[in-house]
Amino acid sequence: MNPYVPILAIGAIGFGFAVFSVAIAFITGPKRYNRAKADAYECGIEPSPSAAGGGRFPVKYFLTAMLFIVFDIEIVFLYPWAVTFDQLGLFGLVEMILFIATVFVAYTYVWRRGGLEWD
């Protein structure tokens, strides 16, 4: 049998459980409407207008996401190398040192340009 089928099975169980919980809460919970309750929570003061959608956030988070993609792809390249490491021998090691050195240049660049600073 395809080894990915059981993953679908547990995924379906988890999904079913989650949907069931969300649905059952509609039935079991009370519904007492009140204008203040439907407001966004901001410690009791009037909520500031439009957080999401129109709300802005520091560009730093976007930068982190981009850096994550760069480094995550690097790691994905490391994995097949690591698994076949014993077959590749010295050749694989030299190749991977060159690869890591190249990535390290980019890493140093990001560091020196302040891409890793939070303040």
């Binding site: 009370p30 929570y41 957080a51």
Partner: peptide
Amino acid sequence: LALKEDLIPKTAD
């Protein structure tokens, strides 16, 4: 928790 009111804020998607 199951017996608590299920709130969706009006600004929410």
